[in-house]
């Protein structure tokens, strides 16, 4: 489960050496990791540990700090909900005051609360609210400057919703699913088909195939007495 998160199959050997070795502290490697981040953004890949390594370098070397990179890392981390990736990134950020070295004003202080809000909505499974806010005019800046560059961002968010739905439902109405995925009636069927789910054309109810999380069974947990331990009881005193 976590091994893919620890070492994504898409991670190259070069990055692996950086992430796992002492070289991760070398400021001159920040470029390689940043390039890797932009590669992730273009090709729908995700490597949390490599991105944390960038934030680590920023933490130690404030002169390397690049707000755009930070924002992109956070956007990628959003799509990992409900895993704690977003919080792990936040923990490595310092609330820096205005960075005078930058030519342009630092966009992070304004974007960060927005991203935190979006993360909160995702973590609380408020998917319709997420889409509403995400598409609001206040967030135009975020969409036009950042998420538009992130290939498959909306689909990655849909995947978050899918994970939650798959664990919770056996059947769900198309209407509800559509509001979680922000898909119209016409778009939804193809999307459902891709997932391998089935939809009843007359009622519009989507059936979610059984998986370990949406199968429930009442069980009684019986204690299991391990024999060697029970055997020890008489032995303990015989040796005395």
């Amino acid at each position: 489960m976590t091994s893919e998160w620890l070492t994504p199959p898409t991670r190259t050997e070069l990055i692996e050496n950086l992430v796992s070795g002492v070289d991760r502290y070398n400021p001159s490697n920040v470029g390689i990791l940043e390039d890797y981040l932009y590669h992730q953004i273009r090709s729908e890949e995700y490597d949390c540990l490599a991105n944390l390594a960038i934030l680590k370098l920023y933490q130690f070397n404030p002169d390397l700090y690049n707000p755009d990179v930070v924002i992109n890392i956070l956007i990628k981390a959003l799509t990992a909900a409900p895993l704690p990736d977003f919080n792990l990134c936040i923990s490595l950020l310092d609330e820096r005051s205005i960075n005078a070295q930058l030519d342009e004003p630092d966009p992070l202080p304004t974007v960060l609360p927005i991203l935190k809000g979006l993360h909160n909505l995702l973590f609380r499974c408020r998917f319709p609210a997420f889409w509403e806010i995400y598409q609001s005019s206040q967030l135009e800046n975020l969409r036009d400057n950042y998420t538009v560059e992130v290939a498959g961002f909306e689909n990655a968010i849909r995947a978050v919703a899918i994970r939650a739905v798959r664990a919770t439902f056996t059947r769900i109405s198309s209407e509800r699913l559509g509001s979680y995925l922000n898909l119209s009636e016409s778009e939804l069927p193809t999307y459902i088909q891709k997932l391998g789910w089935t939809v009843d054309s007359s009622t519009g109810v989507v059936t979610i195939p059984p998986n370990p999380d949406n199968q429930i069974e009442a069980t009684v947990v019986q204690e299991s007495v391990k024999l060697p331990r029970a055997c020890c009881v008489p032995c303990k005193y015989e040796t005395c």
Partner: peptide, 28 residues
């Protein structure tokens, strides 16, 4: 850091459209 997804609660449930079905594991 390795690990697998596990269930942490005795109480399990699933939603079938608008009906919530609940199952609880108990300890004998």
């Amino acid at each position: 850091l390795e690990g697998q997804m596990i269930t942490t609660s005795d109480l399990n449930f699933v939603i079938d459209e608008n009906m919530v079905h609940i199952a609880e594991s108990t300890v004998g």
